[in-house]
Design a protein around this nucleic acid. Sequence first.
RNA 1: GCGCCUGUAGCUCAAUUGGAUAGAGCGCUUGGCUACGGACCAGGAGGUUCUGGGUUCAACUCCUAGCAGGCGCACCA
Length: 576
Amino acid sequence: MNIFKLYRDKIIDILKSASKESLIKLPENLNSINVDIPPSKFNCDISTNVAMVLSKPNEKSPIALAEILSNLIKENDHYIDNISIEKPGFINLKLNKDFWNYFLKNIINDKNYGSQKSLNQKKYLVEFVSANPTGPLHVGHSRGAILGDVISNLLKFNNQIVTKEYYVNDYGNQILHFTKSVYLRACEILNKEVFPTDNPDLYPGEYIKHIAKNIIDENSNLNFNNFDDISRELTVLSVKESIKLIKFNLNNLGVNHDNFASETEIVKNNEVEEVIKKLKKDNFVYNGKIKAPEGEDNSNWVEREQLLFKSTDFGDDKDRPIQKADKSWTYFASDVAYHYTKLNRKYDLLINILGADHAGYIKRITAAVEALSGEKNKLICKVSQLVKLIKDGKPFKMSKRKGDYITVEDLINEVGKDATRFIMLNRSNDVEIDFDFSKVKEKSKDNPLYYVQYCYARISSVFRNINQNINNEIDIKKYDFDYSKDEIKILKKITEWPKCIEVTTEKFEPHRIPVYLYELSSDFHSYWNMGKEDESKRFITKDNKINDDKIVFLKIISNVIKSGMNILGVETPEKM
RNA sequence: GCGCCUGUAGCUCAAUUGGAUAGAGCGCUUGGCUACGGACCAGGAGGUUCUGGGUUCAACUCCUAGCAGGCGCACCA
């Protein structure tokens, strides 16, 4: 139940019938009419800008119009306690006690309060992480992993159908180098030769040794005398080990994909050739040359003719190569083929979560999806910005070459899953995060996660003290409560929850949820402390009982916190 | 050179998808625990929202021209 939508509909109905009676003139487009949350300093619950929007077509001042409209609104709605007009022409409504009873009765046992029930059900494919299967995940990956996971949870909360997919780039040069590294480590273990440290293409990380050891132990038939003889088999085994590590890391973060799609499979099934054939037919692929980028060192640049995709047709700044000099496909080519398989699986909307270093890739891949589907905005890409690691007050640079990067496993061991998720989600995905290892650990008390969890734990403690289960439904026959000003302040915050979900869903910006939960918790902690001086604000009475209005009040708050935390994939312990 | 992201209080960040006197945390500062859980709360100081134009009844938000920082730019994925 979104009361802002409810009142927007009500007001528009009122306007329409007033317009029929020629009392007012309506503009052609009613979209800019809003019903919103008023700033807290006003003693009211909802506000609308209608008078200002209608000012022009009616050739009246907003204030004059507001007087007419506010009378009309008041006559037509019995939940209004008071209606007032403010400066530029806002109409502010204060709702009466009947309204709050109606509202609470409506949502008290609604586990999905806040979800957008009016939304049509669609099929989504969310692709995220998709890190190269050449080793465990590091901190940077975790942000994208959490973002993708929470966007998926959010869609599911809104009753959408979601597939979470990981695209495994198990093809190409990086995999070859990776497999070679595993091979050389295996040779090292078998005392055949020392691992070369001077080859920058190889992966020197410690984990490669473990992978090699596992493969040796489990495959006694494998003969490590010649790389070429076993490279094919070893690639499969190495990637498998790598995926095992990655799945372990994802599991550390509380992330589970539904599906792992393999690039090798796509190449093997000739899907690349097929998709290029289709694009050629539609004139999106041609032979041409591209210019070297200016402003950087181009001394190695060799201009040559190659197969290009015409992404400039869709707003990209240059056309993009799909074939390398040696005639093999570029990464982009197989990715286009992969996206073609997504389209063939009949999803309504594709979502990709990318790391900041791949942001420059967005235009070409959305262009490709548009070329293939003929639909704009079929693919939506969200970027998870950099996580800047700070240790002891100094930036900590990670180097994949040296193998000294901080893995997800390190992160979880230090900070924990819930804190990692909450901290990463608490900021907009478009801004870089300073992740100060020592600080997050030391100052765990200042962590916003605990602030929200503490709120839930406090509510739980009340239920525990009166021997009730916080998870049970509330059964109250008559809703005839008269809440105080301080309680209504929190109930108002509760009315914002569906709006928060709506905006979060529309913009795919999960940070709005932790921000909201923090604010709600803050209001609650504040109220809780009032109980020290004002006995009427305490939940449990002297004879160890609780009144129905307080039960309802607590239950609503805990419900919202719980569903918010569920979307974030974070626990709500009843005791801390 | 081009593209994308960012620029808001001393620091880290929000801002109801264009609304009213721009809000939190940290830090600084003054107070509050015989109390349903102090991992908490109440108060104070702190702002030319990077700059210049424009659109609008209304701009942190949109457009435009700049400035600063980050990321990226075929033959890696």
